[in-house]
Amino acid sequence: MKNIICALIIIALYSSCKSGNSTPATLPILGNREPVTKTVNGKPVTDTVYSTIPAFKFVNQYADTITNKSLDGKIYVADFFFTTCPSICPVMHRNMLNVYKEFKADDNFRIISHTIDPKYDTVPVLKKYADKLGISGNTWWLLHGTKEDTYQIAKKYLVSVQEKNPQGEYIHDGYFILVDKQKRLRGTYDGTDPAQVTKLIADIKTLKTEPDQVAAK
């Protein structure tokens, strides 16, 4: 009898803790938003317009052209790196491998990693890096483009990247950005922190179940 009471108390405590910090069923939408009023059937209707990732065109490690259209109907995670990065990139991609392994069977999911050193990281260099990292198929694309295009798109992901500093190092931050099928930003995670990357994986699962995402093609 005593055991049963104890068990009940433990269950009660456990479930109260769980509901206390459980993740919400939907993720926030990040970035700028603007109310837009338009007229529908003669009545004014106010809608919120969220900032989205604009059209782009890059080339992946297989020399295939990748545009915003290639990501239509897909949830994806973006980051910025370069293959010779001595500091945070190995940690970021050690962690990103967990995301890759979790979702590589899902054709409606992608990872894109933009190189910020396009001069050195040519397509063959990116392919070699991909092979050594042990990634194959089309789940994870390493993207090459002009420096201008890459730096421009980084701003849209709210990621800061800069030119080489006097020591010849690139300064960039190690964020992983979660983007939904409508190309809206849904989360930013410190890619160097395994705990945040675990949260990213959980958030992707949550996002996949949102009605907007289920419906989008």
Binding site: P86, S87, I88, P90, V91, H93, R94, L97, Y129, D131, K132, L133, G134
Partner: peptide, 15 residues
């Protein structure tokens, strides 16, 4: 540790 890992495991075929 960033490159060689917490347990000295390296990183795939890169490190």
């Amino acid at each position: 540790q960033n490159c060689h890992g917490e347990k000295g495991e390296g990183l795939q075929a890169l490190i």
